[in-house]
């Protein structure tokens, strides 16, 4: 199972880099988005991939998934969201200012 996930991460990385190198502003945005998805998955995967073991304490039976990587990825997603949103602002401003 880890292999498949690793391949997915690799695919996201390749796609992101390919897009990043393509050049236009939109491509850069798309590339960064894909690469951050990949990075988030890497962090998430570092906590182990358990199914049906959500880190909620009242239904707890058996081992729980590691909550720390989840929190980290959550933070990373939101930060990435903020940055990408700002990049969109830039895109908008540049297109507004273009003669």
């Amino acid at each position: 199972m880890e292999l498949i996930i690793a391949i997915a991460i690799g695919a996201l990385t390749a796609a992101g880099i390919y897009r990043l190198l393509a050049g236009s502003r939109l491509d850069l945005l798309a590339g960064i988005l894909l690469l951050s998805q990949a990075a988030n998955l890497i962090v998430f995967a570092s906590g182990g991939l358990l199914h049906g073991a959500a880190p909620l304490l009242h239904d707890a039976t058996g081992p729980l998934a590691d909550p720390l990587p989840q929190a980290l990825v959550l933070t990373a997603i939101v930060i990435g969201f903020g940055i990408l949103a700002f990049l969109l602002i830039l895109l908008q401003r540049d297109s507004d200012n273009r003669p």
Partner: peptide, 12 residues
């Protein structure tokens, strides 16, 4: 992104 990956891998 490099930093994030590194932190994740290191934690793992």
């Amino acid at each position: 992104l490099f930093f994030l990956c590194a932190a994740g891998l290191l934690y793992g």
